[in-house]
Write a protein that binds this DNA or RNA. Structure first.
Length: 499
RNA sequence: GGCGGGUUGGCGGAGAGGUUACGCAGCGGAUUGCAAAUCCGUGAAGACCGGUUCGAUUCCGGUACCCGCCUCCA
């Protein structure tokens, strides 16, 4: 069997991967805080770990992999949005408004990530459904120990974790507690015994959502949710824990501290994986720089589909910063247009996909070398272009499918462009298809005058045609699209007035 | 300041201690009714300084620069 090799942040080495239980390979990835539309950066770990999920399913069997990705629905930004709506006069309770906000955000998130070809994880727990487990875990951390202080303590309604009591604190991110204190820039809350101690539970006033606990009404700190949910759903030790590199510290460091102290007999996560950040035109994506995009924004751009975005992400190795540039986007579009004929042959000839090419699997298995995998897929696509053989189309499409590309989408949406402003419907497309039929007929009869006349009339209707060989036609709807001219052209052809 | 990561040809981006990555763009050619597309060929690299080695872009050390984290941002 193919050996998977993965870079483990904890050891800083690429290591062969061996699951604890091959019958149940377990992966946990930190999911989004659901306060707004997912931005482009949110999509990166989704796609990166989707590729890994697909690889694991391929090698161990779909039923032997459990992938958990949480929704953080306890958060100050969510509260702020709910309070804003309340302030605008919404009569419903804060809890209802929060629920509404998180529900709609989760719906958006699903729609956007589905569009990128990401499989849904097996479980998508919400933090608010696991408050009981979090409280239980915190209680366990507060119990007296034989050989030292309890790991957690209560002060002023807060429960805090004593980082000094966990000797390996800082190991994941390669920091020592003393170094961090030396370089700390934040004000230290007065109730902390040690500046690096972090919050497990904090009090809520009447204006904030809260749950009853042994320490009064309050809400959990950020880190405890992942520890509680991963323990509940995956057990005290599991195989892979992933997320963005920005989570390495403090989030993952704190998760490790809590989980290892609460369940010292388990090893928590064995392999830690972190994806690098996304940049836009060489700069950090931020609202203040005006280069901030949601996934939705990008999907609505002209000629950009879910698979275009997916290609962009896979074209850069997950451990390198990904630069989102217009130039690279154009390259992705261009490359994917070469994939369309192979994808179309699958649909047209009703071909069945099969296991992916070993080179693709090997590339992905080598610490997710997706860039190389894309090159292999492109090579296979080129082969289809040359041979037009069903066998080659199957090989190509099986590879593309393994990488998470939707073959039907590739087949149907490429070679088809439109301006952002234009509005047209499926009926317009049907009319266009009929007209193109007449044009092919004319060209078969070497009636180039009619062929060119049709092209000119379509141009007048706002549709630009480009022949691409193999009877592939690229048509582009411009903003000036004129339905009347389009329909008139078809009428002229059907009545024989134009011939 | 502390910690982590990076630096490959005009651009993007891989593998390998010695043998062509590849793609885009460029250039040359072929082909095509036209616009377009397609095909073939081709030049071009490894931030800098040392070290290990018969030989390093690939390993080791240092320098410079860039990026991220240290602030509940993936």
């Amino acid at each position: 069997m193919t050996t998977i090799r993965l870079r483990n942040t904890r050891t800083r080495k690429v290591e062969p991967f061996a699951p604890i239980d091959p019958k149940n390979v377990r992966m946990y990835v930190c999911g989004p805080t659901v306060y707004d539309r997912a931005h482009l950066g949110n999509a990166r770990p989704v796609i990166v770990f989707d590729v890994l999920y697909r690889l694991l399913r391929h090698l161990y069997g779909a039923e032997h992999v459990t992938y958990v990705r949480n929704f953080t629905d306890v958060d100050d930004k969510i509260n702020a949005e709910a309070q804003r709506r309340k302030g605008l006069g919404d009569p419903r309770s804060l809890e209802e408004l929060i629920r509404e906000r998180t529900e709609e955000t989760i719906g958006w998130y699903h729609a956007d990530m589905d569009a990128l070809g990401a499989l849904r994880p097996d479980k998508e727990p919400r933090a608010t459904d696991f408050i009981g487990q979090m409280i239980g875990m915190i209680e366990g951390l507060m119990k007296p120990r034989k050989d030292g202080k309890p790991f957690a303590y209560e002060r002023d309604g807060h429960v805090l974790f004593r980082v000094r009591e966990y000797v390996d604190y800082g190991k994941l991110s390669g920091r020592s507690v003393d170094d961090m204190i030396a370089g700390a820039r934040v004000e230290v809350a007065p109730f902390k015994e040690d500046p690096m101690d972090f919050v497990l539970w904090k009090p809520s006033d009447a204006d904030l959502p809260g749950w009853d606990s042994p320490w009064g009404r309050g809400r959990p700190g950020w880190h405890i949710e992942c520890s509680a949910m991963s323990h509940e759903l995956l057990g005290e030790s599991f195989d892979i824990h992933g997320g963005g590199i920005d989570l390495q510290f403090p989030h993952h460091e704190n998760e490790i501290a809590q989980s290892m102290c609460a369940h010292p007999e388990g090893g928590f996560a064995r392999v830690w994986m972190h994806n690098e950040m996304l940049q836009v035109e060489g700069k950090k994506m931020s609202k203040s720089l005006g280069n901030f995009f949601t996934v939705r924004d990008i999907l609505q751009q002209r000629q950009t589909f879910g698979h275009t975005i997916r290609y962009m992400f896979l074209n850069t190795h997950y451990r390198k910063p990904l630069d989102w540039t217009e130039m690279r986007l154009n390259e992705a579009r261009k490359e994917l247009s070469r994939w369309a004929p192979g994808a179309r042959m699958i649909a047209d000839r009703d071909l069945k996909l099969r296991a992916p090419h070993p080179e693709i699997v090997a590339a992905v298995a080598n610490d997710l070398n997706t860039s190389l995998a894309l090159k292999v897929a492109s090579r296979l696509a080129t082969k289809v272009l040359h041979s037009a053989e069903s066998e080659d189309a199957i090989e190509f499409a099986s590879a593309a499918h393994f990488l998470g590309f939707d073959i039907e989408e590739l087949a149907s949406k490429i070679g088809f462009k439109w301006d952002e402003e234009v509005s047209f419907d499926t009926n317009d497309v049907a009319v266009l298809q009929k007209i193109l039929g007449f044009r092919w007929e004319a060209r078969d009869r070497k009636n180039f005058a009619l062929s060119d006349e049709i092209r000119d009339r379509l141009l007048a209707a706002g549709i630009a045609l480009k022949d691409k060989g193999n009877r592939e036609v690229e048509h582009e709807f411009a903003a000036s699209f004129n339905r009347a001219v389009l329909e008139e052209t078809l009428a002229l052809l059907e009545t024989g007035a134009l011939k």
